Simulated scan of single mutants.
Amino acid sequence: MTIRLDHIVLWVSDPIRSTRFYEEVLGLEPLRLEEFRAGGVPFPSVRVSGETIIDLMPATMAEALSSAPGTEGSAGHPVNHLCLSFSRDGYEALQARLEERGIAIPVTMKDSFGARGHAPETFYFADPDGNVIEARYYD
């Protein structure tokens, strides 16, 4: 089974300034910056590798994201959640293991944007310390 890091979400005060920093200082490619400036997407990202990105989420979105069932109190930390990308079989196996252990999957989403484009399905759950983890697969 192969598990890959898909993306990390960082809370930032100014996504455009942060995108410039990650581009100019770290040499990372900006993604969706013009769409963000135009109001078409809620945040820009930067590419770490062919499979991994960092989302630069406006800190002003923290309160709204902390209101999703199962995520109360999670938003506003320096890192909101980490996302792991699985094969579809690995994704389904993880889902089964979580259910077997009684670990809640409070949020499931369809067509979620990530490092490799749009994932057909994704779900969120928490580790024992309350850190939020997103699992996804790509076709």
Rank of each mutant, 00 (worst) to 15 (best):
S66M: 11
F86P: 00
E99H: 05
N131S: 12
D127I: 01
L5T: 07
F123S: 00
E51Y: 15
F36S: 06
P78D: 14
C83N: 11
E72L: 12
L10D: 05
L94M: 09
L98Q: 01
G130F: 03
F123G: 01
G130Y: 02
V48K: 00
R116L: 15
L10Y: 06
L5H: 04
D127L: 07
G102S: 05
V132D: 02
P69N: 08
M1A: 15
A64N: 15
S45M: 15
F125M: 02
D89Y: 09
F86E: 05
D111F: 04
P69R: 04
V132L: 08
S18W: 07
E134R: 01
D129T: 00
T71H: 13
E23R: 14
E134H: 02
R4Y: 12
R116H: 06
E72W: 10
I3W: 09
L98Y: 06
P44Y: 05
G50T: 13
L33T: 14
H118T: 10
P120G: 01
L98C: 06
G76H: 10
C83V: 14
I54D: 10
R88Q: 12
D111G: 08
A119L: 04
Y22F: 13
S87H: 12
A96P: 11
R47L: 12
T52L: 11
G40T: 14
T60C: 12
T108Q: 13
V12A: 01
R32N: 15
D89P: 06
L33A: 13
R32H: 15
F123M: 03
L31M: 13
G90C: 01
E34W: 11
P44A: 06
H7T: 08
T122G: 06
E134L: 03
G70H: 03
V48R: 00
P128D: 07
S49Y: 05
S66T: 12
S74Y: 14
S67D: 07
T122D: 08
A75F: 10
L82I: 14
F123C: 00
H81F: 07
L26R: 00
W11H: 05
A68M: 15
P128I: 07
F36K: 10
L65G: 03
S74G: 15
G40P: 15
P30L: 09
P42D: 04
Y91S: 11
E121T: 10
R136K: 13
M61V: 06
V25D: 15
I8N: 08
A126E: 05
A59M: 08
R37H: 10
M1V: 14
F125W: 04
M109N: 11
